[in-house]
Design a protein around this nucleic acid. Structure first.
Lengths: 153, 153
DNA sequence: TTTATTTAAGATAAAATACTCTTAATTCCT
DNA sequence: AGGAATTAAGAGTATTTTATCTTAAATAAA
């Protein structure tokens, strides 16, 4: 469904959103905490920078930071920035020419599901995700040992 | 979403389902009509044979045929036979350990969509798809020029 | 202004996926 | 029995995705 790059990208912005008071966070810190290859993550975050979802600053004390309040960043734009909008637009069966005008045998049924997923992604903002992560203590776990330290409560 | 192999596999069984009166259809014919590499398709169909969704017969006049009436074959089992059930079971965000007991920040929302998709796949049988293809004249098109010839009406 | 820190960008490598080719095994037809 | 047709299986190639490594550019602090 989502590429590995996209998943990592979402992990990273979720990490950034988890403490709104911090400004620039180094990619090194994120890659360490989430156990993602530093250089690989750097490339992924460059896509998000170009899409103006995050901003970056080089040099000492540099890093990355959300370009807007987490509440104003939704899942849909993050996914599109990294993976493109194929999953939200293309034919499930990969049939050439399929669309509303010329629906493939599964098109109409699929569009319902696709629109539900699209809607969910558009209506889910980063702030919600971060709060959810906090309330379920998701990050307070043994999977990302250092992650919980960034929570305030 | 679905691998290319899986899409080709679905195309092929849809082709087979489109004329219930034929018995064995050669993979060569299917690959020609649907413009899929013969050897590649052969491998894909072997997965479906192992999964007992189709049966095959070697030798002259051999080929492949649905193992059951199209009405008794659903989309879900075809997908699982080729791609496995990951898309129906795994965490969208790829977070290790995510599940009902320990939901990731997106789990609950995602499960709704996932179950809708799963339900749709389980409730969609090959006969329905073939009828839909016929009624929308999907295959009566310029994309698969030879395909329409297999329809009776 | 020099040095350390940090992202940007490009080259390379490894792994997974998609596709091709060759040979073997099976079945039918003559 | 022999030959043609056809799927099975495995090896090989190509492309894409994932991951790593190296160098360049920018920024801040000493």
């Amino acid at each position: 469904m989502l590429s590995q790059s996209c998943k990592y990208g979402i992990w990273a912005v979720l990490y950034m959103a988890s403490d709104p008071d911090r400004d620039f966070i180094s990619i090194r810190e994120i890659s360490n905490e989430l156990k993602i290859s530093f250089h690989f993550l750097t490339k992924i975050l460059q896509s998000l920078t170009r899409a103006k979802i995050i901003v970056s600053m080089r040099g000492a004390n540099g890093g990355v930071s959300l370009a807007r309040p987490a509440k104003d960043i939704n899942l849909h734009e993050i996914i599109v920035a990294i993976d493109g909008d194929d999953i939200f637009t293309s034919c499930v069966l990969g049939l050439p020419g399929c669309g509303n005008e010329k629906p493939c045998p599964l098109h109409n049924k699929w569009v319902e599901n696709r629109e539900a997923v699209t809607g969910m992604c558009e209506n889910t903002n980063l702030k919600d995700l971060a709060l959810e992560a906090e309330s379920t203590r998701w990050l307070n776990s043994d999977i990302f040992p250092g992650f919980h330290t960034i929570f305030k409560s």
